[in-house]
Simulated scan of single mutants.
Amino acid sequence: MSEATAPSLLRTARIDDVAACLRAVERDDAAAVPVLDERDKAALAEAAAKLTYKRAKPQVNEGEKAVYQDFWLTRDIPAGSVLEHCRDAVEALVNAALRRLDPAPCPPVTFHETVAQWYEPTTCGISPHRDPKTFRYLVALLVMRGDGDFYIVDDRRGSNPRHIPAPEGSLLLMRQPGFGAEDRHPFHTLRTVYSDRLILTFRHDSRRDA
């Protein structure tokens, strides 16, 4: 990979800012911090736009546990691509920030899962839901392009919404079980999507821990 195409996350992001973001996650369940400059956003969004996506199921589960969603996704991230490099850079950045904290709210993370998601403009990208408990410590969402309203909520009805600003170029971190003193994973939702939103989602899968 040439230097011209490699994202400069570790050069443009401030580790202390990411550490402060992690402390905010302890308090607010989720927080975001800017990490990408204009060149990086453009390079990553261009690479993500070339992927082959499939539409997510419009509804997952039934009854009170139903989740409604309107986006496209793929887990087929080319080996050696700028997107794979980005996963490694985000993992290194988060772990460097964790080392700045005493005590650290969780062990070092390994992002086993990478998902690229594309949200077209919509009034509801995904309804209130929680990620499975098998995903531990942190979920990291890198916003490469676009704008949408991300909220932490209390339940599937969307009670007590807390807006978490996460403009393009930001890294949004959200707690999962094993992060901090409280062993919980919050309900969250993406409401209005104002412009095509491309994100990379990274998760630590406990089933793959040695």
Rank of each mutant, 00 (worst) to 15 (best):
M1I: 13
E3S: 14
L9W: 09
L10K: 08
R11G: 09
T12M: 12
A13H: 02
R14S: 10
D16E: 14
D17Q: 13
A19G: 05
C21D: 10
L22T: 06
R23D: 12
R23K: 11
V25C: 10
D28H: 12
D28I: 12
A30T: 05
A32V: 11
V35N: 00
L36N: 03
D37N: 13
E38H: 10
D40P: 13
K41H: 07
L44V: 02
K50S: 08
Y53H: 03
K54E: 15
A56T: 15
K57A: 15
P58L: 13
Q59P: 04
Q59D: 02
N61P: 03
K65I: 04
K65E: 15
K65Y: 06
K65M: 11
K65S: 15
A66Q: 11
D70G: 09
W72E: 11
L73S: 09
T74I: 03
S81A: 04
L83R: 07
H85I: 02
H85K: 14
H85M: 06
V90H: 10
V94T: 05
V94E: 01
A96P: 05
R100P: 11
L101H: 08
D102F: 13
P103T: 06
A104K: 05
P105W: 07
P105T: 07
P108K: 07
P108E: 06
T110F: 06
E113G: 08
T114D: 15
V115W: 05
W118T: 06
W118M: 07
E120T: 14
C124Q: 10
G125C: 03
I126F: 00
S127K: 07
R130K: 14
D131C: 06
F135T: 13
R136C: 13
R136S: 14
Y137E: 13
L138S: 06
L142T: 01
L142D: 00
V143R: 10
M144F: 00
R145S: 09
G146L: 01
G146H: 06
G148A: 02
D149L: 09
D149E: 05
Y151V: 02
V153G: 01
V153C: 14
R156A: 15
R156P: 11
R156D: 10
R156K: 11
N160Q: 09
P161E: 00
P161M: 05
P167T: 04
G169W: 08
S170T: 13
S170E: 07
S170C: 11
L171C: 05
L172F: 11
L173G: 12
M174Q: 08
M174E: 12
P177E: 09
G178R: 09
G178S: 02
F179N: 00
A181G: 00
D183G: 02
R184N: 07
P186F: 08
T189F: 06
Y194K: 15
Y194V: 08
S195K: 07
S195G: 13
D196S: 11
L198D: 05
L198P: 06
I199H: 09
L200D: 03
F202Q: 04
F202T: 14
R203L: 12
R203Q: 12
R203M: 12
R203G: 01
D205T: 03
S206P: 00
R207M: 11
R208M: 02
A210I: 03
A210P: 15
